[in-house]
Structures are given as structure tokens and as C-alpha cells.
Design a protein around this nucleic acid. Structure first.
Length: 324
DNA sequence: CCTAGAATAT
DNA sequence: AATATTCTAG
């Protein structure tokens, strides 16, 4: 039981995307215009973006040849943009709606696309929370720990809200007789909380929930990991750091381009490879904060990786649990 | 003034 | 249902 929390953090970085996992396709998928907007350089020119990257699986990639009239699954997230049923297409109409905002810097002034919480992202989230401890696990801190470019406090806060509900449910279930929280396939998978959908369950189940999470009345496992990772503060919301988001998310109009371009990425017959991009670019903005956040950009626990006395390698679950 | 958290909206 | 945005409290 206790051993669990002894190593739950030992493998927190195991799933961090390794260079191999990171596909340098970011720019490939992005149009020059877009890249410029995001301030993204070509990897060939500036491959310094080796900081923290978050991979993001894209949804089932559409056919390599995206027929215009097949816009059945564009990205219905922008109420303002009442794109026509299928003839609307994307770039075609250009941004007449956002034209005013997209005067010169489209990336700026644009609304942030919806963030998609992938298992990986969520894992990161959980790990961050775990490392911080319930006490310090507040949106801002979590966000900083995660070091995911494009991630905003609101994103985290929102997810945290949901996550808490999930934990709550778990408590309710486990408090009955199960004192141990077995995340992987254990309590989470076994005891399915009624009301939760498989999708949610899977998402949350993809990351083991530290035991202490369910036991608020016992701050025992706060661990001694006061490690303060990188911390690049962002200014206020309304910044143009949506690089990651743009990639991981579908922007009203940008997404279309992504999808379009990603279109020719046809998946290998047998190898289901994701499209991990997102490169956290070091943010420069420095607000002012009393927090002891050091700007030690990359590598917070690199050596920890070796600490993983795990003979068996992790399988890097590309998806929730691979099962089902 | 800034942040966390809950509530509400899309 | 999943996130985002808004509102309120500390």
C-alpha cells in the first residue's frame, strides 16, 4: 500500500515524451503564416525547443484526401463562426469574421481553442498534482509544474474541478471498504463509478491516482519533493501562447488547416502512431511573483529517470489503457 | 489586485 | 459530456 506512493512518483517522468516520440512535424503541419503567427521557427533553424513538450494525439485522422463536401466533422466549437454545412470549407472564406482581429497578427487576439485533455496531458496533470501535494496543488502551481506550453490556469482549473469530482466519487466508493486506491485497473477500473462515462473513467484511469488524493484527512504523503520546476509565468490571459493549444486543439479556423495538412499523414496499416507535437517554447514574460520559482527551464528530474528501477519498461500507453 | 473555486455557459 | 468562461469569495 505504502509502496505505491513510494514509487508513484518514480515513474512520473517515464512517460515523458522522448525525442523519438516527439515528432518534428509541428512545422510541417503548420502553414508558414501560422508558424509565423505563433513565432515558430523551423526545427532546422531553431531546434532549441527541446524544453518540455506535450504530445497530443489527434483524433482519428480523416482520409488523406479530404473532400471539400465532407466537412461532417470540422470543429463545431465556434458559435460565432456559423460555417456553412459543408461548402463553407475553411481558409477559402478567409477570416472575414475575425478579419478585424487578425489584422496583422492573427495569432493574437484570437480566442484560445479548446484544449483537449489527452491521457498524456492528464497524466502530466496528475503527476504534477501528486508532486505538489494536495495542499499546493492549485491551478497556477499545477500549470507551472506541468510546463505545458499553451496551458492556462483556466485550463487547469477547469480540469482540476472535474478531477476533484472524480476523486470525490472514488472516495465515496472506496471509503466503504476499500482502503487502498488502486488506480491502474484496480479500484478505478474495477469499481466503476456509476454516473461516469467510460470515456471519463478511462481518461482518469489512465493515470493512477495517488492514494493520498483520496484521503484529504491525512496529509501524510506530501513527500519531500519540494522541487520547483521550471516556471515561466505568463502574463494575463489573452496571450499568444496558443502554440500548443493550437496544435493540440482545434482552432476555429486553424484546426481546419491542421487537419487538412495532417490529412496526408495516413496511418500506417499496423502502426498507430500519434501526432505528438507541441513544443514548449520558453516564455519570456516575467510578471512579478513572490513565489520562489526558478527559471530552470529544462530537465527537472532527468536523473530521476534512471531511478526507475523498473526492469520492465513502460509501454507508454498511447491511449487510456490500450484495452477495450 | 490576484487567485482559487464553484457556477454557469457553450 | 467536455471545456470554457464568468462570477464570487478570500
Amino acid at each position: 500500500m505504502r509502496e505505491d506512493d513510494s514509487n508513484w512518483f518514480s515513474r512520473w517522468e517515464e512517460e515523458l515524451p522522448s525525442p523519438e516520440e516527439l515528432m518534428p512535424i509541428s512545422q510541417t503541419l503548420i502553414t508558414p503564416d501560422l508558424a509565423l503567427a505563433f513565432d515558430i521557427r523551423n526545427p532546422t533553424s531553431t531546434a532549441t525547443t527541446n524544453t518540455t513538450s506535450l504530445l497530443q494525439q489527434n483524433q482519428p485522422p480523416p482520409p488523406p484526401a479530404p473532400p471539400p463536401p465532407t466537412a461532417t466533422t470540422p470543429s463545431p466549437n465556434n458559435p460565432l463562426q456559423s460555417s456553412q454545412p459543408n461548402s463553407a470549407e475553411y481558409a477559402a472564406d478567409s477570416a472575414d469574421l475575425v478579419s478585424g482581429a487578425a489584422g496583422d497578427e492573427p495569432a493574437r487576439t484570437l480566442k484560445r481553442p479548446r484544449l483537449v485533455w489527452t491521457p498524456q496531458l492528464h497524466k502530466r496533470f496528475v503527476d504534477a498534482v501528486a508532486h505538489l501535494g494536495i495542499k499546493n496543488a492549485v491551478p497556477k502551481t499545477i500549470m507551472q509544474l506541468m510546463s505545458v506550453d499553451g496551458l492556462t490556469r483556466e485550463n487547469v482549473a477547469s480540469h482540476l474541478q472535474k478531477y476533484r469530482l472524480y476523486l470525490k466519487r472514488m472516495q465515496g466508493l472506496s471509503s466503504g471498504g476499500a482502503g487502498g486506491v488502486n488506480g491502474t485497473g484496480g479500484g478505478g477500473g474495477g469499481g466503476l463509478a456509476a454516473g461516469s462515462d467510460a470515456a471519463t473513467e478511462h481518461l482518469f484511469a489512465s493515470s493512477p491516482v495517488p492514494a493520498h488524493f483520496l484521503h484529504p484527512g491525512r496529509p501524510n504523503s506530501d513527500h519531500f519533493l519540494p522541487f520547483v520546476p521550471v516556471a515561466a509565468l505568463q502574463h494575463h490571459h489573452h496571450q499568444q501562447q496558443m502554440a500548443a493549444a493550437a496544435a493540440a486543439v482545434g482552432h476555429p479556423q486553424l484546426q481546419s488547416q491542421y487537419h487538412r495538412q495532417m490529412g496526408h499523414f495516413g496511418q500506417p496499416p499496423n502502426g498507430q502512431f500519434e501526432h505528438p507535437f507541441l513544443a514548449r517554447q520558453t516564455q519570456q514574460p516575467v510578471h512579478r511573483m513572490g513565489a520562489p520559482v526558478h527559471n530552470t527551464v529544462p530537465g527537472y528530474m532527468e536523473d530521476l529517470e534512471s531511478a526507475s528501477g523498473n526492469g520492465g519498461r513502460k509501454v507508454l500507453t498511447l491511449f487510456p489503457t490500450g484495452d477495450d
